[in-house]
């Protein structure tokens, strides 16, 4: 990211602002002095989130209607943000979709939704944002991938495959934009604790969205390229990736 003049407002665009992780990131950013554009479908319904952020931080919070699956809309997104809210300097791509594994196997629509939302939409959207940043010569990109993208497992490989695509896509973007001083951070969260996952069987080492958000912000300030959050997933995944396929294929994961 180019050095920002501290006297100008810094504004971050959060794509897919409805999720618990997105909200935690928005809170951290607002606390750190960022103005925000929260983009989501039916963004009116995020008014309570915006009201809360305004009360706690006095930052300017703008809600923007945004549908990740509206592929034609992505090209004009940057311009739309600029017109409605003002110039922005950081984009955090959080939207995603975790489908039901059984339904994905049976139904084309479910499979497509998982693949399209998690990979295609993220790629198309970030491609255009990247062009915009490149032309301006400033900006920064944070993309949320997942530990699920590090190795395919029978329980969620469509999601994992899409997230693997996201990781590689971000890698490429980083390579392309590094020379322009535009930083790209890939975030690979493990299990995240939300009201939905409380008391759920088979969840382990869950982290709070708050923890994940603060890890992300710290990594951003340190200009890290790829982070696992919480940190131990890096080593866990290293071990998982090292298991030979001949053995891995027999595991129930």
């Amino acid at each position: 990211m180019t050095k920002l003049n501290p006297h100008t407002t810094r504004r971050a665009l959060v794509l897919g602002a409805r999720s618990a992780i997105a909200e935690a990131i928005a809170q951290r950013l607002a606390q750190d002095g960022w103005d925000l554009v929260l983009a989501a479908r039916a963004s009116d319904s995020l008014e309570p989130v915006a009201a809360d952020l305004r009360l706690r931080t006095d930052r300017s919070i703008h809600l923007l209607d945004f549908d990740a699956l509206d592929m034609d809309g992505h090209e004009s997104l940057a311009q739309r943000v600029r017109t409605e809210a003002g110039e922005f300097h950081l984009v955090i791509c959080v939207f995603g979709h975790m489908g039901d594994a059984d339904e994905e196997r049976q139904k084309t629509a479910q499979m497509l939704q998982t693949l399209t939302t998690n990979f295609t939409a993220a790629a198309v959207c970030l491609a255009h944002i990247a062009n915009d940043f490149e032309a301006r010569g400033e900006g920064g990109i944070i993309g949320i991938s997942s530990v699920a993208g590090d190795r395919g497992r029978q329980s969620n490989y469509p999601y994992g495959a899409a997230k693997a695509g996201v990781s590689v896509f971000l890698q490429g973007l980083r390579n392309r934009l590094a020379a322009k001083g535009i930083h790209v951070l890939t975030v690979k969260p493990g299990f995240v604790d939300t009201p939905m996952t409380q008391g759920k069987e088979g969840m382990f080492l869950v982290a709070s969205p708050k923890r994940v958000a603060s890890d992300i912000l710290r990594a951003w300030h340190k200009k890290r390229d790829v982070i696992y959050t919480p940190w131990f997933w890096r080593w866990l995944l290293l071990v998982i990736r090292l298991v030979p396929e001949r053995i891995f294929k027999r595991l129930k994961l």
Binding site: R18, S45, T194, P195, M196, Q198, G199, E201
Partner: peptide
């Protein structure tokens, strides 16, 4: 998916479906 829910006294425990809406419409 079923979750175990119980009060602060930790008993009795029940298997329950949990909905966790994030906004009014949900």
């Amino acid at each position: 998916m079923k979750r175990t829910v119980y009060g602060w006294g930790r008993q009795p425990r029940l298997q329950a479906d949990v909905d966790a809406p994030r906004d009014l419409q949900s």
